[in-house]
Design a protein around this nucleic acid. Sequence first.
DNA 1: TGTTTAATGATAATTAATATCAAATGATAA
DNA 2: TTATCATTTGATATTAATTATCATTAAACA
Lengths: 165, 165
Amino acid sequence: MESRIDRIKKQLHGASYKLTPQREATVRVLLENEEDHLSAEDVYLLVKEKAPEIGLATVYRTLELLTELKIVDKINFGDGVSRYDLRQEGAAHFHHHLVCIECGAVDEIQEDLLEDVEAVVEKRWNFQIKDHRLTFHGICWRCTEKHAEEKNKENVNNPNNNEDF
Amino acid sequence: MESRIDRIKKQLHGASYKLTPQREATVRVLLENEEDHLSAEDVYLLVKEKAPEIGLATVYRTLELLTELKIVDKINFGDGVSRYDLRQEGAAHFHHHLVCIECGAVDEIQEDLLEDVEAVVEKRWNFQIKDHRLTFHGICWRCTEKHAEEKNKENVNNPNNNEDF
DNA sequence: TGTTTAATGATAATTAATATCAAATGATAA
DNA sequence: TTATCATTTGATATTAATTATCATTAAACA
């Protein structure tokens, strides 16, 4: 974790920015919540817990800066807020997302999976791909399991209700 | 075109909505600008040319309705506005986009291309895919050509400047 | 230490989108 | 046809996310 911060510090310096205490606090929040997909407001509230004097504008500015430097990616799942997602260190491309339309959970796919598709697009459409956004909308494994359980319970109550026949 | 409107009318009726003059004017604008990726404001201005009495709220409401019925897809390219894109008739999934980071052009890919990837995701992540969003960011063929031309011109002016050696 | 530049915090301004509500429209049944 | 009811609309107010402004503070520097 500390080394990760150090490397981010170096990236900032490389672009002649400083890792101020406010920026560091923001980066730490992102690192501590790597699984989540926080909005600027979310980040602000979490940073405020550790550094109450920080302003919302600074959080926005920091997130914008980190996005420029490709340390985080800004993504929008269609709910009207931008969310910020740490990029895997050394990842050439942004990872993919699974958004559950029932429970709203967002899971990540770190595997590339798009190599073949990108080769086709580069050649057939003569398009030089620099980055991508891929999101699947559907039903997550947790909701699928829950449905199965509910069906089980139903069948215990009504043993004749067997949809298989 | 007329038949396309008729089919949309039937889709609306099927969900017990009417194709009011305002809704029809909005749909016509979308059909006449199928290549573009209009924002709600864009649609509003175009509809206003034909039906000046229409209100912005009605346009928003119509676009929301068409999105619900999967006649259009709402998409966000990260510039802070939602854009609305007619779905191909009978298309199971939303088509893909190529966004040029130089000139801002947005091109469409109607081919699916994701069949294999989706099969993997459904199985490995146990996720039931209902829809997707795939956007590539990079340099379009027009900008690539333009660069090549500029390089040519440069070499004519400085015949010794041959970067190949 | 004084000076210049970068960064911050508070807050105003902007803007996309939604909510509200009275009026208009359209369908329905007496 | 006319009274009635639900749907839709247009104008406008409201909300909420993001950006802009600007005086103040912190940091780098010479």
